[in-house]
Design a protein around this nucleic acid. Structure first.
Lengths: 246, 246
DNA sequence: GCACGTACATTTATCTGATTAATTGGTCTT
DNA sequence: AAGACCAATTAATCAGATAAATGTACGTGC
C-alpha cells in the first residue's frame, strides 16, 4: 500500500558540521541546563554578537530549537524558553542534551518506565508480524551478546543491537522510530548502567525473548521482555533508594 | 530536585501565523503526501520563486523540517526528503500532516498499537504516584463524558480530556509529553472513530480505570486501560478486515 | 586503459544591511 | 475608567553578495 510508511534505514548527519548546527548544539545544551531559567533568552542580535555569527545563523538555529519545542519567538516579546512539557523528548537531540547534562538518575528511571511499556509490546508485535530478515537481525544481536560475554564484541553495542532489532521487527513505524531514542539513551547512560550492573546483560533472559518470537507467541514475548526491562528498572530504583514520588 | 522536568502546562502558537510557518505547513503536507517521491525536492532558489517568498523564509522553513527529520540539506547535493524512518512521528506537526493526508486506517491502527502500550502503563503509574490535582482532572474528564452522554458536552473533547488527564497523572515527562500526540491523533481521526463506533465511549469502562487509580491499584488500572484501548484496536482491525501483516 | 589529481559548476551556508510588520506598553482623550 | 492612539522594541522579511562544500568532467601522466 502506497500510503504505508516504509521501514528502511538511513544514517543522519552529525551535529557541528557547520556554524548553524554548532550553535544549535550549544544553545540546546544551554537551555536544558537551565542557563536561561532566570536570565532572559538573548535577542537575535545579541546571540549573533555573543557567538560571532551572522543573524541568519542564529535565526536558523533558533528556528530548529523552536521546531523541537524548546523555544518560541514572537516580535516585541522576544525569544523565550518554553516550559519543559513542550520539549519534544522523543527528539534524539533533546534527549541527548538532557542526558548529557548533569546526569540525572531520575530521568533515567523515567525513561525506563517508558521502555517497560514500549518494548514488551514491540516484542509481542514482533512475535505476530516479523519477517525472516527481522528475525535474523534479532538472532544476530543475540549472537553479538554471546560474543561480548567472551570479550569478542562490545557489550553495549550488542545490547543496543538486540533491542533495536526487536523494535524494527514490530513493523510499526512508531516503535521503529523509538530505536533511535532507545539507542541514544542507552549509549548516553552507559557509565551509570555499567556501574549498577557489574555483570554483562544476561544472555539467557534475552534469548527467552527471541525464542518466544520464533515460536510466534506474543504473550510469552511480552512477558519475557517485560521481565528483562523490569529488572533494569528495579536496579535503578534500588540505586535511587526507593525515592518518594515527585 | 532542580534537575527534574517540571510538569506544568502551556499552549503553543498555531501554524500559519506568518510566511515561514505557512511554508512549513505547506511543505510538510506536500512531503508526507509523497509529492517529492519522484520529483526531486526544489532548490532553495526554486522554492523561493514558487512560493513568492525570500530565500530567508525558505531556508528557515527547511531548517524546521530538517529538525523534524523530514529533510536533509547539503551543498551541491541539494535538499532531499529523508526516509520515513527518520521522520519524528512524535512531533505533533508531522503526525497531523500524516493523519490529515488521504486518511490511512493502517496508520490509525499502528498508532493505537502504540496507545495500547503507553496508556495502560501510564494508568499504572498514575495509580502509584498521582496527586490530588491530577486525580481531580481525571474525575473531571469522567464527569464530562457523563455529561456528553446526555448531549451536555462534546464527546470527543471529554474523551480526550480523560486520557490526557491520565497521562499527566503519570508524573513521567515522557508520558506527559504524549498527551499532545494522543490529542492530535484522536482529534484528527474523529470522523473515522465516529464511524466505527456509533455509540458514545462507554463511561463504565472509563470509570473502572479511575476507580483503580483511586484505589491505588496499579495492576487493576493497567488492566482496565488495556481493555479500553484493546477494544478500540479490535474495532479498527475489524473494520480493516484482518489485514495481513506489512 | 587506468589512477589520480585539477578545474569547474552547482547548491547550500554565511554575511551584511535595510525595510516591514507585529506586539506591547504607555499616553492621551473622553 | 475605558478606549483610542502613539511609540518603542523585536522578530520577520527582503535583497544581493561572498564563501564553502562537493559531485562531475576533464586532463594528465603512467
Amino acid at each position: 500500500m502506497a500510503s504505508d510508511l516504509a521501514l528502511n534505514d538511513e544514517g543522519r548527519p552529525q551535529l557541528g558540521r557547520n556554524l548553524t548546527y554548532g550553535l544549535l548544539d550549544n544553545l540546546g545544551r544551554a537551555i536544558v541546563t537551565g542557563k536561561f531559567d532566570h536570565d532572559p533568552f538573548p535577542t537575535e542580535a545579541e546571540l549573533a554578537k555573543q557567538h560571532s555569527v551572522s543573524r541568519s545563523v542564529t535565526r536558523e538555529a533558533v528556528k530548529m530549537l523552536t521546531a523541537k519545542g524548546l523555544l518560541s519567538a514572537r516580535p516585541r516579546q522576544g525569544t523565550v524558553v518554553q516550559p519543559t512539557t513542550s520539549w519534544n523528548l522523543f527528539d534524539t537531540d533533546v534527549l541527548r542534551w538532557l542526558l548529557e547534562r548533569q546526569f540525572s538518575i531520575n530521568l533515567l528511571r523515567q525513561f525506563n518506565q517508558l521502555r517497560v511499556a514500549i518494548e514488551p509490546e514491540a516484542a509481542a508485535l514482533a512475535a505476530q508480524f516479523c519477517d525472516e530478515a527481522s528475525l535474523q537481525r534479532i538472532t544476530d544481536g543475540l549472537e553479538r551478546m554471546k560474543a561480548a560475554e567472551q570479550g569478542l564484541d562490545d557489550t553495549l553495542d550488542a545490547d543496543i543491537a538486540f533491542h533495536v532489532a526487536i523494535l524494527r521487527a514490530s513493523n510499526n513505524p512508531f516503535y521503529v522510530q523509538l530505536r533511535e531514542v532507545v539507542s541514544t539513551a542507552l549509549r548516553t547512560s552507559i557509565r551509570f548502567t555499567n556501574r549498577i550492573k557489574g555483570r554483562t546483560a544476561s544472555v539467557a533472559d534475552h534469548s527467552a525473548v527471541r525464542d518466544a518470537i520464533v515460536a510466534r507467541n506474543p504473550d510469552a514475548a511480552r512477558t519475557a521482555m517485560r521481565a528483562l526491562i523490569g529488572d533494569v528498572l528495579e536496579l535503578i530504583e534500588e540505586a535511587e533508594g526507593v525515592k518518594a514520588p515527585i
